[in-house]
């Protein structure tokens, strides 16, 4: 599985705003990296430049030896099949069923008529059932997406990204609209699945304690530039000030560094001091 390399990536929007400013990053295979930073730092833009939902202004994005920024429309679609994305506010198609939402992750692999008639290959359907089972939604198959709770929706979002059988997972604020407990469960599920499948993942997250808890590497973005890159333990008050600006970081001290038993969510709950 390939490494993701971002070289001198810059995005200037048509309005003149410089969202990312010559960012370079190498994310080795199987690494779960958290991208933190204040709102407007360019986190969303950065991960959208990877699969070109946003067109970068200059610079390169390489997945393995393929330069994604140089691909034409057809090849870009092929490359996108190998990049799963999980969204803030889930971005499920609300009026489609859970199954249709999950299967939409296979659209890059099936022809138009098969997808129009919802006649997906047997293997895809069986994979969808396995994944829905894995994320705990086995009996929700025919529910419409808008009937689900926030946590359930994000689980569908995860299944949709994973059924693509991606090499790389782009995760944009997966917990932004979830309560603290569900947030942890979702982050735990994402990181577990990444380990199981040896997936490379870039996770945008504004919640520093969560980032510390689940990522092996943290990159701090501020005004489109990388101001921190290291292990979660390195996030000292000084570093947080560099990323987010002046604030009494010790006063909001969290228990993020405490040992978290993965299997006992109840204990995690009790530890929470938010």
């Amino acid at each position: 599985m390939p490494t993701l390399s971002i070289n001198d990536l810059t995005k200037r929007y048509a309005t003149g705003d410089l969202a990312i400013d010559q960012v370079s990053l190498v994310i080795p295979e199987g690494q779960v990296m958290a991208l933190i930073g204040p709102s407007g730092a360019g986190k969303s833009t950065l991960i959208r430049c990877v699969n070109r939902l946003v067109e970068p202004t200059s610079g390169d994005v390489l997945l393995g030896d393929q330069n994604i920024t140089k691909l034409g429309a057809r090849k870009l679609r092929r490359a996108r099949r190998h990049i799963g994305m999980i969204f803030q506010e889930y971005a499920l198609v609300e009026r489609l069923t859970v199954m249709e939402n999950v299967l939409s992750g296979r659209l890059g692999y099936v022809g138009f008529w098969a997808s129009w008639l919802r006649r997906f290959p047997k293997q895809d359907i069986s994979d969808a059932f396995t994944l829905l089972d894995r994320v705990g939604l086995a009996d929700m198959v025919d529910k419409r997406a808008d009937e689900l709770s926030g946590g359930q929706r994000q689980r569908v979002g995860i299944a949709r990204a994973l059924i693509q059988n991606p090499d790389l997972l782009l995760v944009d604020e997966p917990t932004a609209s979830l309560d603290p407990k569900t947030s942890r469960q979702i982050m735990r599920l994402i990181t577990e699945l990444c380990r199981e499948r040896n997936l490379t993942a870039v996770v945008n997250i504004h919640d520093v304690p969560l980032a510390k808890l689940f990522a092996e590497r943290v990159v701090g973005l501020q005004a489109g530039q990388i101001v921190f890159d290291g292990s979660p333990e390195g996030l000292s008050p000084d570093v947080l000030t560099r990323i987010y600006g002046e604030e009494d970081w010790l006063a909001t001290a969290e228990t993020g560094n405490a040992d978290m038993p993965e299997s006992e969510p109840g204990v995690v709950e009790a530890d929470r001091s938010l």
């Binding site: 994305m85 009026r95 249709e100 138009f112």
Partner: peptide
């Protein structure tokens, strides 16, 4: 965002119309 999500899966334009636009 729903349209973006379908686009990110590598769907073609017609599939995007069918899955992201039609239901909405």
């Amino acid at each position: 965002s729903q349209a973006e999500a379908i686009r990110s899966t590598g769907a073609s334009w017609l599939q995007w119309l069918d899955y992201a636009i039609r239901p909405q």
